[in-house]
């Protein structure tokens, strides 16, 4: 005899292997005496078989090359699209930044070197970073989940074709971005975060006539900015990272931003 009353809920549990073994016999006899429930069970079993059959073929498909590459750390197909065309200019730019950093590391730093446009940019970028990177819930206006909108919106406001760099290889995921005042114009700030919650930001503005590059620290032990300016745009990467890591992030961001600007 049944030790408890069964219901439609048990049909799902039986189907999904969640019915305790000792209840199985009682369940089966309950089903036999309830034609309506029996019909439901038969139907659900058939639907499940159809579902499994419909997707079985996916398991036999070869793993697409781009997924293998994404996992095994080779160049991804997405990144390769611009690399093919913008490889030369991006590579040249990377050399400039690396050179600038090497100079800094060697002690020829930019601290207190006067008040040029480059220092202004770096100071604004650091100030923005200090304020917003510390915000837990209100760090950004547009979250990364809305990346396409974020890029379009900031591009339109700042007047540059902005592409949020993919810094996953450096361990950073985009959190989102916001629009900020910068000098007489506007700047875009993109915030990134790594698995440990360490944040860095990218600060991009269309206002620049100078050509400069370097690193800047507003105060001792404060966050550091790696920046570069060219005709028509200026950019700074700010964070409190070990210098080598910040340099690697800046290098990657620079190459991708440049490729985006030129696209």
């Amino acid at each position: 005899m049944t030790r408890r009353d069964f219901s439609e809920r048990d049909i799902h549990m039986a189907l999904d292997g969640e019915l305790p073994g000792e209840e199985r016999m009682a369940y089966d006899s309950w089903l036999e005496t309830n034609p309506e429930m029996k019909a439901k069970s038969v139907r659900y079993i058939a639907d499940r078989a159809a579902l499994r059959a419909a997707f079985a073929g996916v398991m036999d498909e070869p793993v697409p090359a781009r997924l293998r590459q994404a996992l095994l750390g080779e160049a991804t197909v997405r990144a390769a699209a611009w690399r093919s065309r913008w490889w030369l200019s991006a590579a040249a730019a990377v050399v400039l930044v690396a050179g600038g950093l090497a100079g800094y590391v060697a002690g020829i730093d930019g601290i207190g070197r006067g008040d040029g446009a480059d220092d202004q940019l770096a100071e604004q970028a650091i100030a923005a970073h200090v304020i917003y990177a510390a915000e837990k819930r209100h760090a950004v206006e547009v979250p990364a989940s809305d990346k396409d909108h974020l890029q379009t919106w900031l591009s339109n406001r700042v007047g540059l074709k902005l592409v949020a760099p993919d810094l996953a290889a450096e361990g950073f995921q985009l959190v989102g971005g916001r629009l900020l005042p910068a000098g007489h114009g506007k700047a875009a700030m993109l915030l990134y975060e790594d698995a440990k919650g360490e944040r860095i930001s990218l600060f991009v503005t269309a206002e620049s006539a100078d050509k400069a590059k370097g690193t800047y620290m507003a105060e001792k032990d404060g966050p550091e900015a790696v920046y570069w300016l060219d005709k028509g745009y200026g950019c700074a990467v700010v964070g409190s990272l070990p210098r080598e890591r910040l340099a690697a992030v800046a290098k990657s961001a620079y190459g991708q931003l440049l490729a985006g600007l030129a696209s």
Binding site: L51, F55, V58, M59, V63, L71, L72
Partner: peptide, 21 residues
């Protein structure tokens, strides 16, 4: 290829099936 990546590689067919559904 390290051990972890090899294990992840083996899960890709299932991940693709789930994503496709």
């Amino acid at each position: 290829m390290n051990e972890k990546k090899a294990a992840i590689l083996g899960e890709i067919p299932r991940l693709r099936r789930y994503a496709r559904s």
